[in-house]
Write a protein that binds this DNA or RNA. Structure first.
Lengths: 204, 204
DNA sequence: TCCTCCAACTTGTCACTGTCAAGATGCGCA
DNA sequence: TGCGCATCTTGACAGTGACAAGTTGGAGGA
């Protein structure tokens, strides 16, 4: 898909692809718009027309990331049992797995100051990914978290657990704990997620 | 403490102070060594002599941050009850509070690619802060996490909870959850930390 | 007291960055 | 065929980190 003429054809997609590759090779802090352009074989300010500025490109990449985050949760759920508990655990594991597979993208999505937060617009990828988690929680608690405070605590607990595990895992801090290599990772994650479930089910 | 002569006197400390101010005003990604130098009233490459490069200055700032993180945990523990449960909860709340008070510094410490990880040197500020948490866990479980797997799961659970809450809080995502404003923050945090405690004490 | 050394700091330069303005190109449509 | 305009290029500017070479002045020895 090399550039054949003055007009690229699908420059926007090519820039996104090169952008994600560069992001995963370096990090958000070493990201360079000019290098993305160069790797795409295009002039240094070609991206501006499609994304405005560097923040625009990073925001587009983050949006793509949120779609994949949700997809990863769904994928794990498909391969899991059908009970509400198993589904929620699978959801959390998909969340963590996504972070482990795309750490730079995960960091971009959640901790970069250079992505534009889209206000509180509806149906935006970050909202949709979050809503997926909310739905899973609602299924298990049988109540809407925005109304039922037990479900709300469950929602926050599950999200915190997933997000915290993701952060500590991709920073290498989890595996740097002395003695942690003796713990089975799958069992650990399942137990931690289950610790947030309603107290009627004594987990494990 | 203006510069009075060719030799500054305590330039290193002045640069660290200006560096942290700049960090909190912008973020890691917009941090500029030259601006730090300018605000300190010194030439653009004066910092190089004390810190080598930008990574050196940021690493020094991060180390200072880890000392304060530990201090914040200790401070909360002093104001809490003396039981092992209360002490561990206080530790976690000090962790989260530190992040909320110095979000940019917290991000620098945990998610920046520009701070040099000091290998596995002993008695370095990050290790000492982590060890403080380990000690609290060991106190409550009555076992060394590096040997006892229950204590290890507790350690990881508590750390994940603290770190996850810190991340979600300073990114504004916790308070953006619809309906979350009805939850009492203190009670929420305490309940979430307690959910990781040994099952013999049914928490809350 | 003077002298010398050298850590501390400055000045100048380089390649690289993001952004903006102005120009070139060629696709699609009338 | 020829025109309009989205698409892309070229050029310029201020800001960045890093490096090399020069300047300053305090501390310690004779």
């Amino acid at each position: 898909m090399e550039k054949t003429s003055y007009h690229h054809g699908d420059l926007r997609a090519a820039l996104l692809e090169a952008g994600e590759r560069l992001l995963s090779e370096t990090s958000v802090e070493n990201f360079s718009l000019r290098r993305v352009a160069k790797e795409t074989g295009v002039s240094h300010s070609a991206p501006a027309h499609h994304f405005g500025d560097v923040s625009g490109l990073l925001t587009a990449l983050a949006d793509e990331g949120f779609k994949r985050l949700k997809a990863s949760m769904v994928k794990f759920q498909r391969e899991a049992g059908t009970s509400a508990e198993e589904q929620l655990i699978a959801s959390g594991r998909g969340y963590v797995r996504f972070a482990e597979e795309s750490p730079a993208l995960f960091r971009l999505m959640f901790t970069s100051q250079r992505v534009a937060t889209n206000g509180d617009a509806e149906n935006t990828p970050p909202i949709l990914a979050f809503q997926h988690l909310v739905d899973d929680v609602q299924e298990l608690w049988g109540a809407d978290p925005s109304i039922n405070s037990d479900a709300m605590v469950g929602l926050i607990g599950c999200w915190t657990m997933a997000h915290g595990l993701a952060e500590l895992s991709i920073s290498g801090r989890l595996s740097s704990i002395r003695g942690s290599e003796k713990i089975d990772r799958d069992a650990l994650f399942s137990a931690l997620f289950a610790s947030q479930f309603p107290s009627t089910s004594p987990s494990k």
